[in-house]
């Protein structure tokens, strides 16, 4: 029983780690950002998952409903999503400038070019 209860978390962890892997293992700057996105998005799922109460409903007060899911993580994640997109926007802007300056968006090529400087 407990095992099944945790299964959700495990899948989330796999998701997180996939994102994390993309960030650190890939050379392409855009793909790194994508990885960051996935990494963060899975953390969001993690929060939302823990907010769920069995048999609960969305936390919008209404007559006759007793059990609601926990609203606090929802709030936190709303914030976090926006933070995430802000980071993405900045990261992409930097990628564009890097592409202008170096002519490539592959990390190892950039490094090679920097070493020449």
């Amino acid at each position: 029983m407990e095992f099944l209860g945790l299964l959700n978390y495990w899948i989330i962890i796999v998701l997180m780690m996939t994102g994390f892997y993309i960030v650190i293992a890939h050379n392409n700057l855009v793909k790194k950002i994508v990885g960051l996105n996935i990494f963060q998005a899975s953390v969001f799922v993690f929060y939302i998952t823990m907010a769920k109460v069995k048999g609960g409903t969305a936390p919008i007060l209404a007559e006759g409903i007793e059990v609601y899911s926990n609203p606090l993580p929802h709030v936190l994640i709303l914030t976090a999503i926006v933070v995430g997109v802000a980071t993405t926007a900045l990261g992409l802007a930097l990628v564009i400038r890097i592409r202008d300056a170096y002519g490539t968006i592959e990390d190892d090529e950039i490094e090679a070019r920097e070493n020449e400087l």
Binding site: N37, A41, F44, I48, T49, A51, K52, V53, G56, T57, A58, P59, I60, Y68, S69, P73, H74, I77, L78, I81, V82, G84, V85
Partner: peptide, 15 residues
């Protein structure tokens, strides 16, 4: 599914 409709809304629009 997890009852976080507000978040879902935002995620769809943002993500």
């Amino acid at each position: 599914v997890l009852d976080a409709v507000d978040v879902a809304f935002t995620e769809a629009a943002v993500g």
